[in-house]
Design a protein around this nucleic acid. Structure first.
Length: 436
RNA sequence: GUGCCUAUAGUUUAGUGGUAAAACUCGGGUUUGUGGAACCUGUGUCGAGAGUUCGAUUCUCUCUAGGCACCCCA
């Protein structure tokens, strides 16, 4: 068998998933640690779960078709239907429902799971992505909504984005539902059509938009369009009848915007055209928008979903949360030039002059590492110039050269590559120079 | 999932029906204990498979992957 010329295995990664080479991983780690730090500053605890879930978890919520077409679902050897999780919310809801009696609420939980979706890959749309999920369970009042949006804002700020770079759009399902179901009395089918249409309002022309509205609600299309085009919240509500079932939603929005403003979060606006895909939302919904005029787009969002735990047949637990994907945020940090510079893997590179000195160099490295300095030893046996070149290419800031002299005296020179300055020192004193 | 476009060195790209080029990167070398330079040099079965042809990297088909739009939206 000549395996070499036949049946070569491709070096390509599986369709729609990414390899993370060290440079990519460094960025990924930076993104994750920034997310974690912001979230943990609000006292949230990290949880985790397997990527494998029984497929029925998603069927219960989304219906058979979506499970078959949009998720990775297959049979295991025991004839069970298994899915790779397409989102985290059902998992966390399951975990909480399972131990409802054990917890004292509220629960503040977060996770950065990888999620899978069987979709045709495109820019910014992969088959595997990671998503920060932040949720608070067990708080019925608006304090939870305010807290969740505060965290979202803090994550953005910690990434170095300014409040003027992005906008937090706010709407409320109570208002949306009232308008679609009570005011225009739409069938389920039509209200879904309208919801989708509103969602892509900015993608299609005004004429197309208006004519589709006209088709669905011929008698009241003008009123609908006028309502949707309201310039601000006041104008919007002035056009609506005073109806109790909707007043709640209006009060909530006002209250949330006010309280966030008092917390110094002022880039929050009401947006009557904000819909969001999931239908399990029951109250406040929000979406963070990149205001970059070149590329206005939704970055991430979330909302309140008070009924979701009902699918497990347990008592209902009110919940608010959001999810933030790694692909979009990386994109945005790139456009704003906010990705960190390359972090050197090592602080100190020990160059070795001759074979005999390697043992000494290793021992030295071992001791220097006690001071939390990251040390690499060069075993290449190459010329000293090449060893230094290696350190330079890998952006290792300091080097030491070890040869017969150094082994004999125990003294050596530390060289900082950026300045070329050499300082004579010893094993015990070296941390003073490198920690400079 | 549907339609369209693309695929040449590690990367970005040029090019031709007679088996390929540039820039940068990477590896090796030229100064025998101190780098970022210069110079020399190496690397490709031209995405995979099949067909047309004397001959295919070039034309045709299939597949694979990527991109754009639709769809979907976490």
């Amino acid at each position: 068998m000549s395996q070499n010329d036949k049946q070569k295995i491709s070096t390509e990664s599986y369709k729609g998933v990414r390899d993370f080479y060290p440079a990519d991983m460094a960025i990924q780690n930076y993104i994750f640690s920034t997310m974690k730090k912001a979230t943990e500053s609000f006292g949230y605890s990290e949880y985790g779960a397997s990527v494998l879930e029984p497929a029925e978890l998603y069927r219960a919520k989304s219906g058979e078709e979506i499970v078959n077409e949009q998720t990775y679902t297959f049979k295991d050897k025991g004839d069970r239907d298994v899915s790779l999780r397409p989102e985290m919310t059902p998992t966390v809801a399951r975990m909480i429902a399972a131990r409802l009696k054990e917890f004292s609420f509220p629960l503040r939980w977060y996770s950065i799971p990888n999620l899978f979706r069987y979709e045709k890959p495109q820019r910014g749309r992969t088959r595997e992505h990671w998503q920060l999920n932040v949720d608070i369970f067990g708080v019925k009042n608006l304090n939870a909504d305010v807290e969740i949006i505060s965290i979202a804002s803090k994550v953005m700020r910690n990434f170095g984005l300014k409040d003027t770079d992005f906008e937090i759009k706010l709407n409320n399902r109570k208002i949306v539902n009232y308008i679609l179901n009570n005011l225009f009395v739409l069938s389920e089918e039509n209200s879904q059509k309208i919801a989708k249409l509103i969602d892509k309002k900015n993608k299609i022309s005004e004429e197309d938009f208006n004519s589709i509205i006209q088709e669905i609600i011929p008698e009241k299309s003008l009123f609908f369009i006028e309502l949707l085009n309201s310039k601000n919240f006041e104008e919007f509500i002035s056009k609506l009848p005073q109806e109790a079932s909707m007043q709640e939603g209006i009060i909530e929005i006002k209250e949330i915007i006010n309280r966030l403003e008092n917390l110094g979060i002022k880039n929050v606006v009401f947006a009557q055209d904000l819909m969001r895909g999931f239908d399990y939302y029951t109250g406040m919904i929000f979406e963070v928008f990149d205001k970059n005029p070149e590329n206005k787009r939704a970055v991430f969002g979330g909302g309140r979903y008070d009924e979701l735990l009902a699918i497990f047949g347990k008592e209902v637990v009110p919940a608010v949360g959001f999810g933030m994907g790694d692909v979009v945020i990386k994109d945005i940090l790139e456009t704003y030039g906010l990705l960190p510079k390359i972090i050197p893997p090592s602080n100190l590179h020990i160059c070795v002059m001759d074979e005999k000195s390697i043992g000494y160099a290793q021992d030295l490295a071992q001791n220097i590492r006690e001071n939390e300095i990251k040390v690499t030893v060069d075993y290449s046996g190459k010329k000293i110039g090449d060893q230094i070149k290696y350190a330079d290419k890998n952006r290792i800031p300091f080097i030491i050269c070890i040869g017969e002299e150094e082994v004999k005296t125990g003294k050596f020179k530390v060289k900082e590559l950026s300045t070329g300055i050499e300082t004579e020192t010893t094993e015990d004193e070296i941390y003073k120079i490198i920690n400079l």
